[in-house]
């Protein structure tokens, strides 16, 4: 009964979210996010009917759609990067390099771990793989948010809602997937129900933040600072070096 209530509330909230996205033209501004929501809605409907009528195929359908869902959700991270940093090409460049570095490290670590434990390829469950993929997404979001905060990039309500809502969802998914692999059956069942019941909360969060369009804070007037960057960096470096020299002197005294 509770599961049905959660399923139908998710379907209803996703439909409202899509409807509002079309009405407020947010769909064209955040296509990756709304594609993801559309896919989740489709997944919910397919899984619901599969559970009722072709129960034997339910697990395959669920995990296949779940992996596709994770792939679609990667677009949200890229969209936050694209929209949030559109007025800040220099910061976008740094972010590309940092994200590239994060993905390279994650790939190398995964390959090394798999090489050290060849059984992983055979024994890894769909849940393990999903957990690992979500963890990589989580690290990418951490890197992205850290750079946004470091460079004090302003967020509009819509973009902030997408980022915070999706980030919290990834955070919650990582914890639930990791814990569910190493707890008793009862706790596992409880976690599963809690995980399912929490999704409408994220949808509500998105709905509140994406009810209507709000423009991103206007970027400060762009000035030809390119030539000045070297000077700015040099001044900062000199000042920080001065401070370091003085601090080192103090620590040494």
């Amino acid at each position: 009964m509770l599961n049905q209530l959660v399923s139908w509330s998710c379907i209803a909230l996703e439909s409202v979210l899509l409807f509002r996205g079309l009405r407020s033209k947010l769909g064209s501004r955040y296509p990756a996010f709304y594609t993801y929501i559309s896919f989740v809605l489709l997944q919910d409907l397919v899984c619901y009917f599969a559970f009722r009528w072709v129960h034997s195929l339910y697990t395959y359908i669920y995990w296949t759609s779940e992996f596709l869902c994770i792939l679609f959700s990667c677009g949200i991270v890229l969209e936050v990067y694209r929209v949030g940093l559109s007025s800040y090409p220099g910061t976008a460049r740094i972010t590309r390099k940092v994200l590239g570095f994060v993905f390279a490290v994650a790939l190398v670590k995964a390959l090394v771990s798999a090489a050290n434990d060849p059984r992983w390829w055979l024994e890894a469950t769909a849940k393990d793989v999903a957990g690992t993929l979500r963890a990589v997404q989580g690290i990418a979001i951490i890197a992205l948010v850290s750079l946004f905060l470091f460079y004090a990039i302003p967020f509009a309500r819509n973009l902030r809602g997408i980022l915070v809502g999706y980030g919290l969802f990834v955070c919650w998914t990582i914890i639930c997937l990791t814990l569910s692999s190493s707890v008793s059956e009862n706790v596992h069942a409880f976690l599963k129900n809690l995980y399912q019941a929490s999704y409408p909360v994220f949808l509500l969060f998105w709905l509140v933040h994406l009810w209507s369009y709000q423009a991103n804070p206007a970027s400060e007037v762009e000035v030809p600072l390119e030539r000045e960057y070297e000077r700015i960096a040099a001044v900062t470096r000199r000042r920080l070096h001065d401070v370091r020299g003085q601090l080192a002197k103090v620590v040494g005294s």
């Binding site: 460049r93 390099k97 470091f150 460079y151 700015i232 960096a233």
Partner: peptide
């Protein structure tokens, strides 16, 4: 000092990864 730097530099099209990394480490 670092905030002044980030606010002044974030609009630049020519931010350099190595320079920024060094400044962050120094900070």
């Amino acid at each position: 000092i670092m905030r002044e730097h980030t606010q002044a530099a974030r609009h630049s099209r020519d931010l350099q990864f190595v320079t920024e990394s060094k400044l962050v480490l120094l900070y």
